[in-house]
Simulated assay, not measured.
Amino acid sequence: MGALERQYEYGKWVLASLLAVHAGSLLAISQAGAATARLYQACGPLLIYGVATTLVAGGLAWINFSVVANVYAHVLRAIREGREPSLTVGKKYLALVTFWITPLVAVGSLMLFLIAAVRAANVI
C-alpha cells in the first residue's frame, strides 16, 4: 500500500511541476517588458499547449486511479462473498491504456516546455 501511495504522490508532483513550469513561463513572458511580444510569439502557444497537455495527463491519471480503485473494490467484494474475481475486458483495457498513455502525455508536455525554452533562448 505504501508503494501505491508514493506512486500517487510522485504523479501529483510531476503534474504540479509541469503546470508550474508552463504557467510560470507564461507569467515570466508577461513580465518581460519590451521582449514580451517576441517571446509570446516564439513560445507562448507551446506553453499554453503544455498546460492543456498537463491537464489531459492529470485527467487520464484520475481515470486510471478511479478504474483501478473500482476493480480493487470489485475483487475484494467477490473474495468476501466467496466468488472467483473476474474483470471485465473494458475495465482491464481502460486501466492498461490510461496507465501507459498518461506518462507519454506528460512527456509530451515536458517536450513542449523544452521546445519553448529553446525558442525563448533564441529570441533573447
Rank of each mutant, 00 (worst) to 15 (best):
M1R: 05
M1V: 12
A3E: 12
A3P: 02
L4M: 13
R6D: 09
Q7H: 11
Y8A: 10
E9F: 06
G11L: 08
G11D: 12
G11I: 06
W13G: 11
A16R: 09
S17D: 14
L18D: 01
L18I: 01
L19M: 03
A20N: 11
A20R: 11
V21L: 04
G24Q: 14
S25I: 05
L26N: 05
L26S: 05
L27D: 08
L27A: 11
I29P: 01
S30Y: 15
A34Y: 00
A35D: 14
A37Y: 08
Q41H: 13
A42N: 05
P45C: 02
I48V: 15
Y49F: 09
A52M: 10
A52I: 13
T53Q: 09
T53M: 05
T53H: 11
L55V: 15
L55K: 08
V56E: 01
V56S: 01
V56H: 01
G59F: 06
L60D: 04
L60Q: 06
A61R: 10
A61T: 11
W62P: 00
I63M: 04
F65A: 07
V67Q: 02
V67W: 07
V67H: 02
V68P: 13
A69L: 12
N70S: 14
N70V: 08
N70R: 13
V71T: 12
Y72N: 13
A73F: 08
H74Q: 14
V75H: 09
L76I: 02
R77Y: 09
A78N: 13
R80P: 03
E81R: 14
R83Q: 11
P85E: 03
L87F: 08
G90W: 15
G90N: 10
G90E: 09
K92Y: 07
K92E: 09
Y93W: 15
A95S: 14
V97P: 02
T98W: 00
W100L: 07
W100H: 12
I101L: 15
T102P: 00
P103S: 03
A106Y: 12
V107I: 14
G108A: 12
G108P: 02
S109D: 01
S109V: 02
L110V: 02
L110Q: 04
M111T: 15
M111G: 05
L112Q: 04
L112E: 00
L114A: 14
I115G: 03
I115N: 03
I115D: 09
A117S: 09
V118D: 10
V118H: 10
R119W: 10
R119D: 08
N122F: 10
N122A: 14
V123Q: 03
